[in-house]
Simulated scan of single mutants.
Amino acid sequence: MSQHEDGRALHEACVEAGVAYAGDFLKVRRDRVRLPDGRLAQREYIVHPGAVMVVPLLDDGRFVLERQFRYPLGRVMIEFPAGKLDPGESGLRCAMRELREETGYMAREWARAGVLHNAIAYSTEGIEVWFARGLTPGAASLDEGEFVDVFAAAPQELDAWVRSGEVTDAKTLIGLLWWQHWQCGRWCPDWLPVDDTNQASSPP
């Protein structure tokens, strides 16, 4: 395989790393890089700790979804439950924690669908997507300052909201698409049983 075929000829090398902004949650880097033709350029991008998203499936076939106000867009968005990884936290542990905290639900089975990179031009963020089924309800435990409306909707409803433009969240669009691949038999998730009575100490 040539360098052009495997992409090596397109690589950019960092020659000077810098931090433009460091906040409590995100860091913005400003690096100088050497382009494939030898010229120098500047790259600004957000360093993100990573996140998970859960596609929770009720026994009657409906999804568990959330409405949440997203300040940068100034509007309420419909999304699957999601949240950022804590330092050293595995994707599965984070998925279980976020589902329990935001919706109150716990799940008996989990399957990892994959990872999506939702803003490759300016962010390192990767979102690990998990399917969850065998749900049991409970009390949510939202973070301070977090306000979420949890509700259930049929796949056909979510698909209609996507088609009409009411749902535009990238990770939710991908979650629906990957669920459709599973339902059509294109994907076969490997389900992991988890003790839903002891998820706080479940395997990583």
Rank of each mutant, 00 (worst) to 15 (best):
M1P: 01
H11K: 09
H11L: 15
C14V: 15
V15I: 14
V15K: 02
E16T: 01
E16F: 03
A20M: 12
Y21W: 12
G23Y: 06
D24C: 02
L26W: 05
L26M: 12
K27E: 12
R30S: 01
R34F: 06
D37E: 10
G38L: 05
A41I: 02
Q42F: 10
Q42N: 02
I46P: 00
I46T: 13
P49W: 13
G50D: 04
M53A: 15
M53H: 01
M53S: 11
V54L: 11
P56H: 09
L57P: 00
G61T: 10
F63G: 02
V64R: 06
L65N: 01
L65G: 00
R67L: 08
R67D: 09
Y71H: 11
G74F: 08
R75K: 15
M77E: 14
I78N: 06
I78Y: 07
E79I: 13
F80T: 10
P81S: 01
P81E: 03
K84D: 14
D86R: 05
E89P: 00
S90V: 06
L92V: 04
L92G: 02
R93E: 06
M96H: 01
R97L: 09
E98F: 02
E98L: 08
G104M: 05
Y105Q: 01
A107L: 09
R108D: 09
R108C: 05
R108F: 08
E109N: 08
E109G: 01
A111R: 08
R112H: 12
A113C: 00
V115I: 15
L116I: 15
H117I: 09
A119D: 12
I120D: 07
Y122R: 13
T124D: 02
T124P: 00
G126C: 03
I127T: 12
E128S: 13
W130D: 04
W130N: 04
A132H: 10
R133C: 11
T136H: 10
P137S: 12
P137A: 14
P137Y: 11
G138Q: 11
A140W: 04
A140Q: 06
A140N: 01
S141C: 07
D143Y: 03
D143L: 11
D143Q: 04
D143V: 02
E144M: 07
G145T: 06
D149A: 09
D149N: 08
D149Y: 08
V150M: 08
F151D: 02
A153D: 08
A153S: 09
A154T: 09
A154G: 03
P155Q: 07
Q156H: 09
Q156D: 14
W161K: 15
V167A: 06
D169A: 06
D169W: 11
K171I: 00
T172S: 11
I174H: 03
G175V: 13
G175I: 14
L176R: 13
L177H: 13
L177D: 05
W178H: 12
W179D: 04
H181S: 06
Q183S: 02
Q183L: 05
G185Y: 10
R186I: 15
C188P: 00
C188T: 15
P189K: 06
P189E: 05
L192M: 13
D195P: 05
D195E: 10
T197P: 00
Q199Y: 03
Q199A: 04
S201M: 14
S201F: 15
S201R: 15
S202C: 13
P203H: 08
P204D: 09
P204K: 05
